[in-house]
């Protein structure tokens, strides 16, 4: 177990309206087995004891699946490893390091406080059409819809998205196309998604544009930082879904 001293540069902002700034904190005696978020817990305990405002950050399951944690660490969403911030451990850093911690930056993800951003845009995009319209109780027997394993696996790969928003944070255009692409692809590949396929693609893309996300320039940064390794193929599929819907749909 190694102990390390760190300098932290953290974005502090009292609320959505306030002007924020980077503040410097020094922290000592950090153990390399700690998770990154536990390191912030230690900082916060120190701050409260000193009578200072603790740093607000989103986090919950701390096992890499809820998608709540959302820090840009040294300029990279979720830090140096391709995982969620909660799964990043301090052994990825060295004694004496200076670590920059910033919130996701996007017009569609406004900062609410310190490192917390509002990601409700993602929910609204899904409300626009990210579902199969099937009322409870009206489903046929599950095995009446056979789905080839390969398609099921591909759809699953898209479905693994945890909605953390790292793709938006990583993209130089703050584009949400990997997220929307993953959602659209899952339904586009599965037979259950066929009926509403065109309407869904048009509605979700329209909502995405309305939220103020940028457009994809295929740098691949989103996929390279995605903790679930969602592939760029999802964006291609979204483009195809949208263009097909726009130019062949009758509505």
């Amino acid at each position: 177990m190694k102990s390390m001293n760190l300098t932290l540069k953290i974005w502090r902002q009292a609320n959505a309206q306030a002007k924020g700034e980077m503040k410097t904190y020094s922290l000592s005696g950090i153990n390399d087995h700690m998770s990154f978020l536990e390191m912030l817990d230690v900082l916060n305990e120190d701050l409260v004891k000193k009578g200072e405002e603790p740093v607000a950050f989103d986090h919950d399951c701390r096992e890499g699946i809820c998608g709540a944690c959302s820090l840009v660490i040294n300029g990279r969403p979720h830090g140096p490893l391709q995982t969620t911030t909660c799964q990043l451990h301090m052994r990825s850093f060295k004694d004496g390091d200076t670590i920059y911690i910033e919130p996701w930056r996007a017009k569609a993800f406004p900062v609410m406080k310190d490192l917390i951003v509002d990601r409700s845009a993602f929910d609204r995009i899904q409300q626009a059409g990210g579902y199969v319209s099937v009322n409870t109780g009206s489903a046929p027997d599950a095995n009446e819809i056979p789905i080839g394993k390969q398609i099921a696996d591909e759809a699953f790969n898209s479905a693994t998205c945890i909605g953390c928003g790292a793709c938006v944070a990583a993209c130089k255009n703050a584009s949400a196309m990997l997220f929307v692409g993953a959602k659209l692809s899952q339904y586009a590949m599965l037979p259950q998604g066929q009926v509403e396929r065109k309407r869904r693609a048009e509605a979700m893309v329209a909502q995405m544009d309305k939220e103020g996300f940028g457009a994809c320039t295929n740098t691949g940064a989103c996929s390279a930082e995605c903790p679930k390794e969602i592939s760029m193929a999802n964006i291609a599929m979204m483009n195809r879904e949208f263009l097909t819907a726009k130019f062949t749909g009758e509505a």
Binding site: V134, T136, A139, P140, D141, A142, I145, I147, A152, Q192
Partner: peptide, 14 residues
Amino acid sequence: DQCVAQGVPFAREY
């Protein structure tokens, strides 16, 4: 049945 109809990608056989 309900979950499959919603598009939940359960594991499948070949």
